[in-house]
Design a protein around this nucleic acid. Sequence first.
DNA 1: ATCGAGCATAAGGTGAGCTTACGCATAAGC
DNA 2: GCTTATGCGTAAGCTCACCTTATGCTCGAT
Lengths: 311, 311
Amino acid sequence: MLDVRRLHLLRELDRRGTIAAVAEALTFTASAVSQQLSALEREAGVALLERSGRRVVLTPAGRTLVTHADAVLERLELAVSELAGAREGIGGPLRIGTFPSGGPAIVPATLAELAQRHPALEPMVQEIDSARVSDGLRAGELDVALVHDYDFVPASPDTTVDQVPLLEEPMYLATGGTTDSAPAAGRVARGETLAELLGPWAMSPWITARDGTTGHAMAVRACLAAGFQPRIRHRVNDFRTVLALAAIGQGAGFVPEMATAYAPEDVVLTRLPLFRRSKIAFRAGGGTHPAIAAFVAAARTAVAPRAVPPR
Amino acid sequence: MLDVRRLHLLRELDRRGTIAAVAEALTFTASAVSQQLSALEREAGVALLERSGRRVVLTPAGRTLVTHADAVLERLELAVSELAGAREGIGGPLRIGTFPSGGPAIVPATLAELAQRHPALEPMVQEIDSARVSDGLRAGELDVALVHDYDFVPASPDTTVDQVPLLEEPMYLATGGTTDSAPAAGRVARGETLAELLGPWAMSPWITARDGTTGHAMAVRACLAAGFQPRIRHRVNDFRTVLALAAIGQGAGFVPEMATAYAPEDVVLTRLPLFRRSKIAFRAGGGTHPAIAAFVAAARTAVAPRAVPPR
DNA sequence: ATCGAGCATAAGGTGAGCTTACGCATAAGC
DNA sequence: GCTTATGCGTAAGCTCACCTTATGCTCGAT
């Protein structure tokens, strides 16, 4: 019988790319991982990896074996969830990951709701980039996470992670009355196309999230879709800072609806036909875990009435 | 993560009923199994077994966990099969179980076919009662097995074992010309009902397979369906012996079509609307294993043209 | 050319998991 | 009713699988 712990290592190798990274993620030495993968190859009787430069890559046989590993581990996760359901009461630690802007807006309300319903639960919140969430979930550093994606930035499909929708917010264009190169017209009416709404700000400086984030990618691609390449002047992730900068005429930026509550008086907000979708992610098979189900329910209550209705 | 080896033990406990039986089957001591199951309960955080007299029975949580164990182990079996497919060439030992009457008829022809196609394969044949086949497969003592069932004796469904049909044979009634209480009529025409065909022999002595076999159960139930309780005089499994006894007027018996090739001259054979279905069984998920697929193909060739056409 | 990253192997320590030994409870047998 | 056998659990000890440390090799980058 194939050793499932070793299959787990192979799966992580497929995801993370190097033995060293797998070892680091699972707090082993690289030597231990290398030895176990060698043992797995012996069990399998087929070459699963081959060296490529100073790294290793999976052979076709190795990659198909990873798909089986995914299936096995998902089923084990489901079993764990059902066992947790069989234990009476919901309690213990729950490791929650959240994208940074979820911190002030969604998380506190959710945790308050959760604490009221399940006092024995010990939530542990940790900010984490959406891109690193799936690694964190698989490594067991997280049990559940708030993530989001935007139009123009499709989330990469990942069979090891399940997601349920939580919130769908329109994005707003934040601009100031006295922007360097602002058009003459002030507020623009709703309902027009993205190109029409963003076009007037084509020559304006822009405020986006930092490079490498999905927010940054969204901003650039939205502007490209509107027909121009944005000149990015400021790169900040915090939406309150974005709003403050826009208010003093330092450029145009995108903010989600949630952040508009913090908008200064003199910022001009234009609703865009562009959406940010917040979701709750957890390990595939973990949806039936009572603590995770409780978190989902609490989050939905906390963001109500703006929540996406449960399927 | 739940330990899959322990889940395997739990599954075997569910199937075999006692820890001692599991230990015996997997060549452990009962103590080792007991300790591992205790550890599994600790992992699970829920009671999985409880004592009942001097045995243990699974709790509801334990039973649902077994269904997950089945799924996980099936997927692992599938993974092993695909790995074997990735290895070039088919070779190594193949442990084959067969019901006793399959020995002379099907097995040699299949093995000859198999040896011709895959000389590196080392088939190992072992007679085994159909009732014990699924235990043998799960314990790894067998890789593939010839089994059969009869009308009136439904095979118990078992999700851990997959089966493919091989052969469907009519059963024949074997009688002698001078049976103690034979009816006047000799050979009976085909196509009549079971009651009409068996009825004349209601008062005859009968020759059936030994108690506790499916062949015995089939005989009794067929006679009951025909409206009488058979008086069983001889209990032998070997169909050639059944035919010889019937020929000398010692009673009526059932034989499958395959056995009719060995019928003595003076035995009377009557085709019955009653069938024996031979199948090939293997561990769930093992159907894609190249050696098993090769065995199935060879067996089909060997029994052609009487084989059930592949689906 | 030098250095660092990444992987593999050798050698050694340690804990998980096995066996043996024993005790207890229950069911069966006389 | 007492004895016996069966089945399970715990205690103690041993062994080997698996991890760490140490070392070397290869490849790519500066």
